[in-house]
Simulated scan of single mutants.
Amino acid sequence: MSQGDERGYGDNDPGGRSDDAYSTLGGTRQTRTRMPRGTDDGEGYGRRPARNSRSLVMIVGVVVLLIAAIAFANQGGGDASGDAGEKKPDAAGAGPTAATGTKPVEGKNGTIASGFAHDQQGAQSAAANYAVALVSADILKQDRRSQIIQQIFIAERADELSAKFNKAYDQSFLDKIGLDAEGNAAAGLTYVSRTAPVGTKTTSYLDATATIEVWCTGVFGTAGVGSTNPVSNDWFTMTLELQWAGNDWKVDSFAQKDGPAPVNTDRTASNADEIAKAVEQYGGFTYAR
């Protein structure tokens, strides 16, 4: 969903004093009348009475206090519950979508990133990259599916999950989306399955295990003239159970659910040729927390 006009997020109630230059403090709209000052000076108006020195001292004191209060607030001293210089966990820049700034990985295992850090940041980075692989077009190709399973799942689950994936992506399923037994589209058609993680969240973390949720969007379908499965977009969340094994994070199991999804815009859809070219011309990313 596009953000739209940010100004619409709150009412612009003008409040306070009117823009009218003749309005007075407090909005009373009382006018100020200039009175004659007498005739004891050369211009026909009397001088203003001398300001009381005590009043002057009080005004100066109030100004000094205001300046001190503003400086104190800017330093974060308004919170009496903790150290003013200490950054709070919920402060700006420490939210769940803020990047850590840590380099995510040092290498690759085939086309999939590997060598993630042994911490929460590493677990979230691993989950984001594994989510992309699990919903890619390659997972529908039997030879590539076997490689992906070996690369991202723990060794103890590889055989079991291979059998489950093969059953889920059988010929009946492939026929529904217009693919042959090898997971390839018919001549002149391009099968599209591209996922982009929007954010990650740790729901549990121990030294050797982690549960990570990955919020994703993506495009899926078959592009080309005569396609019965046109490319459309989707929003979903994947939950990955990870284990630390072989000096890297590996997947033990995963689940998927719909949403959260924004409202669709009225933007005109691209034609099948544009979608097919985009898939071929635009490469993917290594995702990091």
Score class of each variant (00 low, 15 high):
Asp83Phe: 04
Gly85Thr: 13
Gly85Leu: 11
Glu86Ala: 15
Pro89Leu: 08
Thr97Trp: 09
Ala98Met: 06
Ala98Ile: 00
Ala98His: 09
Ala99Asp: 09
Gly101Cys: 09
Gly101Ser: 09
Lys103Ile: 03
Glu106Trp: 07
Lys108Tyr: 14
Asn109Thr: 10
Ile112Phe: 12
Ile112Glu: 14
Ala113His: 04
Gly115Val: 04
Gln121Asp: 15
Gly122Glu: 01
Ala123Leu: 07
Gln124Ser: 09
Ala126Trp: 04
Ala126Ile: 05
Ala126Phe: 00
Ala126Pro: 10
Tyr130Gly: 07
Val132Ala: 02
Ala133Ile: 06
Leu134Cys: 04
Val135Gly: 01
Val135Tyr: 11
Val135Asn: 08
Asp138His: 07
Ile139Lys: 02
Leu140Val: 04
Leu140Ile: 00
Gln142Trp: 11
Asp143Met: 05
Arg145Met: 07
Ser146Leu: 11
Gln147Arg: 15
Ile148Asp: 12
Ile149Pro: 00
Gln150Cys: 08
Gln151Tyr: 05
Ile154Trp: 00
Arg157Trp: 01
Arg157Ser: 09
Ala158Lys: 12
Leu161Ser: 07
Ala163Lys: 12
Ala163Gly: 10
Ala163Ile: 06
Ala163Leu: 08
Ala163Thr: 00
Lys164Glu: 09
Phe165Arg: 02
Asn166Tyr: 09
Lys167Asn: 13
Lys167Ala: 13
Ser172Phe: 07
Ile177Cys: 07
Ile177Phe: 09
Gly178Trp: 01
Leu179Met: 12
Ala181Gln: 14
Ala181Arg: 15
Glu182Asp: 15
Gly183Tyr: 00
Ala185Gly: 03
Ala185His: 02
Ala185Tyr: 08
Ala186Asp: 15
Gly188Ser: 07
Leu189Gly: 07
Thr195Arg: 05
Ala196Gln: 08
Ala196Asp: 14
Ala196Cys: 03
Val198Trp: 02
Gly199Leu: 01
Thr200Ile: 05
Lys201Ile: 14
Thr202Gln: 08
Thr203Leu: 14
Ser204Asp: 15
Ser204Tyr: 08
Ser204Met: 06
Asp207Ile: 05
Thr211Lys: 01
Thr211Phe: 06
Glu213Phe: 05
Cys216Ser: 03
Gly218Phe: 02
Val219Gln: 10
Gly221Glu: 11
Gly224Thr: 10
Val225Leu: 02
Val225Trp: 02
Ser227Val: 02
